[in-house]
Design a binder for these strands. Structure first.
Lengths: 145, 145
DNA sequence: ATGCTTGTGGGTAAAAGTGGGGTGAAATGG
DNA sequence: CCATTTCACCCCACTTTTACCCACAAGCAT
């Protein structure tokens, strides 16, 4: 269960530390790929398998299915954490999510997977989220206990 | 079943004592997140699971689903009580709910979960509740209990 | 009164975060 | 096919933060 929002640095080599409390669930292979909204997504192997299966089930005749396939699979990387719990992000992925040493990175726990954000982009997204909820309070209904 | 209102202090390290009578129901993981009206909410693990399951059911391709997911999970923290029944609140959550060592905190039992309030905000909210009830009793009819 | 439980504060040892250097393997070019 | 270079991986070292432990103080009940 990944929860919370953490600020970390990206070093000159393109390495990013994963929060210590998440590492236990990321011992094996980890898949990093492009996410929607210009962030990166990080999946434990099992969760990735599930997601891949769902995408593979989409008919190849659906243009949206083809796009989603390319978005997820084309730039995906299977990596392992190093001894200090860091992952090496390819230059391509770093560029996609605008991750630089000076800007740093925000790691967000989303229950079953993680997202990696450029901090200023995350702030903007956050403001956007709040605005959307205020505009459309009915969305909160989903949360009724 | 959480009931009652209790006053506690927040120490310099950001720790907050949970009332002793509540601890029995909070032995495992506890999830703390921001609530509406600038308070924090505290959920036992089982109650949180219910919430999380509902949000996870939303597809990632729906922009509103993504926003809701990020709102709920990103600002939540999974914590354990320490040996003395205290939780450590992140700086971010403390700032959101205006919790400082000098102000202290009010813990409110709300049956299935708890709320944590800045004392003066709680008083204002309390007065607001009563005023609303007295001014326009008809408002409450819609709840038809 | 006197134990016991609860609330509060602080100190310390361990772990986490960050950066840099060396080594071997793969890639590139002649 | 060989020489050179680049890059990823592993190791080490330093700094900061976290979490655990203990000690004291203040009720409450016996």
């Amino acid at each position: 269960m990944f929860l919370g929002r953490y600020a970390y640095t990206v070093d000159e080599k393109g390495r990013l530390t994963i929060p210590a409390r998440f590492r236990e669930a990321l011992t094996g292979d980890v898949v990093i790929t492009r996410g929607l909204d210009r962030c990166l997504t990080v999946y434990p192997a099992e969760v990735w398998q599930e997601l891949a299966a769902k995408v593979n089930a989409l008919p190849i005749t659906d243009p949206r299915g083809r796009s989603l396939r390319r978005l997820l699979f084309a730039e995906a990387e299977s990596v392992k954490l190093d001894r200090h719990g860091r992952v090496l992000l390819s230059e391509w992925l770093r560029k996609y999510a605008e991750l630089t040493p000076s800007a740093g990175a925000i790691i967000v726990g989303l229950d079953r997977f993680l997202e990696i954000w450029n901090p200023t982009r995350w702030e903007a997204e956050n403001a956007h989220q709040i605005a959307m909820m205020e505009e459309d309070p009915a969305l909160w209904e989903t949360l009724h206990l």
